[in-house]
Design a protein around this nucleic acid. Structure first.
Length: 586
RNA sequence: CGGGGCGUAGCUCAGCUUGGUAGAGCGCUUGCUUCGGGAGCAAGAGGUCGCAGGUUCGAAUCCUGUCGCCCCGACCA
């Protein structure tokens, strides 16, 4: 490619609206231009990189036996009503009406369409398993699009859907896709982890995410040092611990004026925060719950939502807490009122009746259940209990003991091997076992070997193609700009003639090398824009071309080119031949 | 959706408090001199100050509304 005929629009200034480095560099280097919130145009140079990522994904999907198709981005609402998601999806689903008033949505994903399509042609077990994929534009009306193409509203996704007669076949294909994803991320040259994931609201059982490790990542990953366990913290289990030790103290009300957080109370009382019980008041399906974890722990929302009856829980408001417990946030505990509060005797009786009755359920984490002689809120403003024990007459017993806390750094790995360390990651891929959720909802059956109608098992596998471009940059850049790996660089080699307008020798040598590289099948570009050396080098670094060959009179005098790798510290002189340049590319 | 902030030249921003002829840097055009890490000088082009009302002799500036964008918190490739 001749840069004189290719739009390269770089800027020295960083756009004001870009927060993360990949977004800044993609805009500065002219890879993308913003059209609106979460809407980006891929400029020609950016499209080259995007196409390369797409092609790597396509090659690995094809090699893994998946077949490419292409579905409409606009989907009829009927399909979403069949699956039940039309009413479940919130504002994220962009809804449209056509001229007849018929309702549609812009597809945020394609489970409905693929099931609808595949079921039309699939009648027999002999036609399964099969795995369809497409690389296509999706639209999700994100609450808060940000970080450029990393979290755009319109983005490019590779989505694949497989169908199977049984769970074993699904498991086989799931592992096949998982292996394909490992190859994809390896070819992209990124440091990544495959982690156990929560399957979210797409449904289904087993799922893993592929994360590109980066400090700017939005996800927190729990990875075992010295082991193989890796999970998104949302999905990371924690190990049960021992039973509570026998009580050695009796409960004592103590004043803790204005001390609300566990750290404040522990500090005020000179106690270890690990002796504290943290209680979170939540309401689900009209019922009041207290979620109890140790003072230094956090509640894991995803785990709580998996408990029976708590799927749609919300935090209790201060008003609700006052009404139900006679307490305020900061002083909540699984305890009855002692009768020494400013509240009236009747109120206390009412609170205690509520607290003691089934209308309040205590759900304790394993560690919280194992506490003894602990400190907890007294359900009175400014008051806590010390020396409390679950067996105490005024303490409620946990109705449920479950794993509801967030895993923490330093915890033993849930699989028993290694110690947990946290990393940040950018989710670039996700593999799911969906089971029969969609095939059942949409009435998809095929005849098995016995001639009986059977609902197929389904898997789905996504790669955030456009997001990955940004993720690679997050991992591979320096003060001067992007450092592309060869596999997805817009060009592998850039030929930079110095003073070609003045020196016929330079012009001739650089044109010849450029032509030879192209003839040799190397993706090369020549910067024939007539720029001064400084701006030419600055552009080359900013747009991130891996290999740079500078040709000037100085080098040609001794039959030499100058070669520099984008990540190399210094340039070196090499023989002024195609062979010498090719040797550097290997 | 709740909270905070910003809309002035292609880009980054000043001007607004205290109304009075619209500014700088970068970029762009032309000429000359330069030419190995974003050159110098000179001369130019380029903005109905997001939009709509209102106050005023007069509004980028004050008021109201509206639209857009960005940032901080519950979801996802």
């Amino acid at each position: 490619m001749r840069l004189s005929r290719f739009p390269i629009h770089t800027t020295k200034e960083t756009p004001a609206d870009a927060q993360v480095i990949s977004h800044q560099l993609m805009q500065r280097a002219g890879y993308i231009r913003k059209l609106g919130a979460g809407l980006y145009t891929w400029m020609p140079i950016g499209k080259r990189v995007l196409a390369k990522v797409e092609n790597i994904v396509r090659e690995e999907m094809n090699n893994a036996g998946a077949v490419e198709c292409f579905m409409p981005s606009i989907q009829p609402s009927e399909l979403w009503q069949q699956s039940g998601r039309w009413d479940v999806m919130g504002g994220e689903l962009l809804r449209l009406k056509d001229r007849h008033g018929a309702e549609f949505c812009y597809g945020p994903t394609h489970e409905e369409v693929i099931v609808h399509t595949v079921m039309q042609d699939t009648r027999s077990y002999k036609q399964l398993p099969v795995n369809y994929y497409q690389i296509q534009t999706k639209f999700r009306d994100e609450r808060r699009p940000r970080f450029g193409v990393m979290r755009a509203r319109e983005f490019i996704m590779k989505d694949a859907y497989s169908f199977h007669m049984d769970a074993e076949s699904l498991e086989t294909e799931y592992q096949n896709m998982r292996a394909a994803y490992i190859r994809i991320f390896t070819r992209l040259g990124v440091d990544f982890r495959c982690v156990k994931a929560d399957s979210g609201n797409i449904g289904g059982a087993k799922s893993e995410e592929f994360h590109v490790l980066a400090g700017s990542g939005e996800d927190l990953l729990a990875v075992a040092e010295g082991g193989t366990y890796a999970a998104n913290v949302e999905a990371a289990e924690t190990l049960p611990c021992g039973a509570a030790a026998a009580a050695t103290q009796t409960a004592t009300r103590v004043e803790t004026p204005g001390k609300k957080s566990c750290a404040d109370v522990a500090g005020f009382l000179g106690a270890d925060i690990k002796q504290m019980l943290k209680c979170i008041a939540v309401i689900a399906e009209g019922k009041f719950y207290l979620l109890a974890v140790r003072g230094d722990r956090e509640v894991n929302e995803v785990k709580v939502r998996k408990l029976a009856g708590l799927k749609d829980y919300v935090l209790a408001t201060e008003t609700e807490i006052v009404k139900t417990l006679g307490s305020r946030p900061g002083f909540i505990g699984p305890v009855l009122h002692a009768g020494e509060t400013t509240a009236s005797a009747a109120d206390i009786e009412a609170f205690n009746a509520l607290i003691a009755s089934n209308s309040i359920t205590v759900i304790a984490d394993h560690e919280a259940a194992a506490l003894s002689d602990f400190i907890c809120g007294a359900n009175e403003k400014g008051m806590h209990y010390t020396g409390m024990n679950w067996g105490d007459a005024i303490a409620l017993k946990p109705a449920v003991v479950a794993d509801i806390r967030m895993i923490a750094e330093g915890d033993p790995s849930p699989d028993g091997v290694g110690t947990i360390k946290f990393y940040r990651g950018i989710e670039g891929g996700h593999v799911f076992q969906l089971g029969q959720k969609y095939s059942k909802a949409m009435g998809f059956t095929v005849l098995n070997e016995q001639g009986q109608a059977t609902t197929p098992e389904m898997g789905c596998y996504g790669v955030g193609v456009s997001r990955l471009v940004a993720a690679v940059i997050e991992q591979s850049h320096d003060a001067n700009g992007i450092c592309w790996p060869d596999a997805i660089a817009p060009w592998r080699v850039l030929v930079c003639p110095i003073g070609a307008d003045k020196s016929p020798a330079v012009k001739e040598a650089s044109e010849r090398l450029y032509a030879e590289l192209i003839a040799a099948g190397i993706e090369a570009a020549i910067d024939d824009r007539g720029q001064r050396p400084g701006s030419m080098f600055a552009d080359a670094d900013l747009i991130g071309i891996p290999h740079r060959v500078v040709i000037g009179d100085k080098g040609l005098a001794t039959q030499q080119f100058e070669y520099k790798h984008r990540k190399g510290a210094a340039a070196e002189m090499i023989a002024a031949t195609l062979e010498a340049v090719l040797a550097k590319l290997d």
